[in-house]
Computed example of a mutant assay.
Amino acid sequence: MGKADGVVPDGVTVSDDEFAAVAELDPALLKAVRRAAKAAARNGVTFYVNSGWRSPAYQNQLLREALAEYGSEKEAARWVATADTSPHVSGDAVDIGKSDAAAWLSEHGAEYGLCQIYRNEPWHFELRPDAADGGCPRMYADPTHDPRMQK
């Protein structure tokens, strides 16, 4: 797996279009993340991309690794989705690092339509355009509680 599959080395920011993990994100999501990153930068916070778009092959590799680490499909599913259900494969999710950036986005993300989706993944954000007006929807405990993962 490599850069073309969505693998990102340390230090990749939301502006680094030469990485598929960034360039292949849904354009509306990418625009919102970049707007938020610009605002966060005024507070000295940089948004790094720990993960963004992923190829199905890369997603499957991550799932195999999670199965090996957690020992069961049930436990692995709390952390890694299948290629068929992962919002990373469709370009609809971005994992933001470092912890200060994820915390900033958790606090201010709704202003940009960016919402934390899972309580167990404070780095995982998806676009919810209505959040700017009505706030983010209630978080799921983890992906196993997300109806989108039940395909």
Score class of each variant (00 low, 15 high):
residue 2 G to Q: 10
residue 3 K to S: 14
residue 4 A to M: 10
residue 5 D to Q: 06
residue 7 V to W: 11
residue 8 V to R: 04
residue 8 V to K: 02
residue 8 V to T: 07
residue 17 D to E: 11
residue 19 F to K: 07
residue 21 A to M: 07
residue 21 A to K: 03
residue 23 A to H: 02
residue 23 A to Q: 06
residue 24 E to I: 00
residue 25 L to E: 01
residue 26 D to A: 07
residue 29 L to C: 07
residue 30 L to Q: 14
residue 31 K to L: 05
residue 31 K to N: 03
residue 34 R to N: 04
residue 36 A to Y: 01
residue 41 A to H: 09
residue 41 A to G: 13
residue 45 V to H: 00
residue 45 V to P: 03
residue 47 F to Q: 05
residue 50 N to L: 08
residue 51 S to Q: 09
residue 51 S to I: 00
residue 53 W to G: 08
residue 53 W to Y: 13
residue 57 A to P: 08
residue 59 Q to C: 02
residue 59 Q to R: 03
residue 59 Q to I: 08
residue 62 L to E: 10
residue 62 L to Q: 14
residue 64 R to T: 11
residue 65 E to V: 07
residue 67 L to Y: 08
residue 70 Y to K: 13
residue 72 S to E: 03
residue 74 K to W: 08
residue 74 K to V: 13
residue 80 V to I: 15
residue 82 T to P: 02
residue 83 A to Q: 09
residue 83 A to W: 05
residue 85 T to V: 12
residue 86 S to Q: 03
residue 91 G to D: 07
residue 93 A to C: 05
residue 94 V to G: 01
residue 97 G to V: 01
residue 97 G to P: 00
residue 98 K to R: 11
residue 102 A to D: 01
residue 102 A to K: 02
residue 105 L to C: 02
residue 109 G to L: 00
residue 111 E to Y: 06
residue 113 G to K: 07
residue 114 L to V: 01
residue 117 I to F: 09
residue 117 I to S: 12
residue 117 I to K: 14
residue 118 Y to S: 12
residue 119 R to D: 13
residue 119 R to H: 10
residue 119 R to A: 15
residue 121 E to M: 15
residue 121 E to L: 15
residue 122 P to L: 11
residue 122 P to K: 07
residue 122 P to I: 11
residue 122 P to A: 13
residue 123 W to Q: 14
residue 123 W to D: 13
residue 129 P to H: 09
residue 130 D to E: 15
residue 130 D to Q: 09
residue 130 D to H: 06
residue 131 A to T: 01
residue 134 G to N: 12
residue 138 R to E: 14
residue 138 R to Q: 14
residue 140 Y to G: 12
residue 143 P to K: 10
residue 144 T to K: 04
residue 144 T to A: 06
residue 146 D to M: 14
residue 147 P to G: 11
residue 150 Q to I: 10
